[in-house]
Design a binder for these strands. Sequence first.
DNA 1: TTAATATGACCGACCAGTCGGTCATATTAG
DNA 2: CTAATATGACCGACTGGTCGGTCATATTAA
Lengths: 207, 207
Amino acid sequence: MAPKIVNRQEKRRSILMAAMKVFAEKGFTKARMADIAETAGVGKGTIYEYFASREELFKETFLFFFEDFKKKSDYIIREVHSPAEQLSMYIKELSQTLRETHKDFLPVIMDFWAEGVRNRNKMASIHKLMKEAYTDFRHTLSGIISNGIANGEFEEIDPSLSASAIMAAVDGLFLQWVIDPQIFDLCMAVEEVADFFLKGILKRDRI
Amino acid sequence: MAPKIVNRQEKRRSILMAAMKVFAEKGFTKARMADIAETAGVGKGTIYEYFASREELFKETFLFFFEDFKKKSDYIIREVHSPAEQLSMYIKELSQTLRETHKDFLPVIMDFWAEGVRNRNKMASIHKLMKEAYTDFRHTLSGIISNGIANGEFEEIDPSLSASAIMAAVDGLFLQWVIDPQIFDLCMAVEEVADFFLKGILKRDRI
DNA sequence: TTAATATGACCGACCAGTCGGTCATATTAG
DNA sequence: CTAATATGACCGACTGGTCGGTCATATTAA
C-alpha cells in the first residue's frame, strides 16, 4: 500500500508540515499524534520513524519559524545600508511576519512562549532555543544601533537595552493585538511606536 | 442547621491559596487536583465543594493577581497628582509587582497568556478576563496621559496608543527577563525605557 | 444535662476517557 | 528470500470529576 516514497528528507518534511498545520489549529498542547498522522496521511507509528517524540516535532516547528524570519532579516541587513533604515525595515518586517505569516499560528506562538519560560522541566530545550533566538535578535538589533551610533546617526544610547526595548515593544503590542485585534492594527501600531523611538534616538543636529 | 462551624469563605480561600502555590510550582497545565488537595490538606472531593472545576480555580487565581495590582495602582492614582509622576509611579509599581510578587508565579502568568489567547475553546472566559484586564490597564494609563495633555505637561500624543506602548514595553521586557534574567534587571530596564518615553512626550518648553 | 437525631462538610475509591509511544505484523523493494 | 519500512491495534499511565458513605457537630427532646 505504502507507495514509492523514496526521499527520507522529503517525507520527514511533509510530516513536519502536517504537524505544523495541526499545531496551528489546536496549539501544541491539544495537538494529538493521531491528528498529525492523519493529516500527514501516514500511520501514527511512522511519525516515530522520523521524529523521536512530540517534543522534537515542536522544537523543529520553532526552528522553522525562527529561521524563516532570520532569512528575511539577513536580507534586509545585507541590502539596506543606513542603520536608521535597517532598523525601521527590520522592525516592520518583524511585525508583518507576526501579523501575516504567524496569524494562523497564534496558539503555537503562545505555546512557544509558555514552554520557553518553563526551563525547569524536560522541555528545557525549548527554553534554550528561545533564549538563543532572543539573544540573536538582540545581537542583530544592537549591532545596527551600534553602527548608527558609530556613524553619527544615533545618539549615544545603550545598544543592548535599546534592542531589548524594541523587541519588547513589538512582542508586547503583538500580545495586546492577539488578545483584542480591534484596538489597533498591529503593523500601524508598531510603526508608530518605532517612529517615536527613532525620533528619540536620531541625532537632530549634525553640525 | 449548619453542623460544623466552618467559615466557608476562609476555607475557600485556603484552598485557593494552595492552588496558587501548586500553580506556581507546576503551571496550570501540569497542576493536578490531587496536588492541590494535598497541599491544602483536604480531600480531593472537598475542592469541588468550593470550586466548580479546575478552570474556576484558575480564573480566581487570575483575578487575585489582577485585583492585587489594581489596589496598589488605585492608591497611586489617588495619592499622586501630577500626571507625569503618576505615570512613572504606575510603571514602576507594575514592574516591581512583576519582578517581586509575581516572580514565583511565572509559569502561571505564562499560562494566563497562553490560555487567554485561545479564545475559541471552553476556556473562553479566561480570554474575556484578560481582555478586560488589559482594557482596564489601557484605560487607566490613557486617562493619566489625557490629563497630562490637558494640563500641558505632555505633547499631543495618542493617549490610547501610548498606553498600549507602555504596557507593551513592560510586558515585553518582562518576557525577555523571564527567558534570561541575566541580561538586565527588570526594574532598571523598565525605568530606563520609561524615562526615555517620558522624555519624548514631556513638553520641553511651555512658551 | 444528656442522649437522640439531623445536617452537610469531608473524603477517596472509582469511573470513563485520553493519549503518547510501542511492537507484532504487513507490505514493499531489491 | 531478506531487509527495510510502514502501520494501527494495543498498552499502560494518567487525570478530572463523581458519588455513596462517614462522622463531627449543632439542635432538640426529655
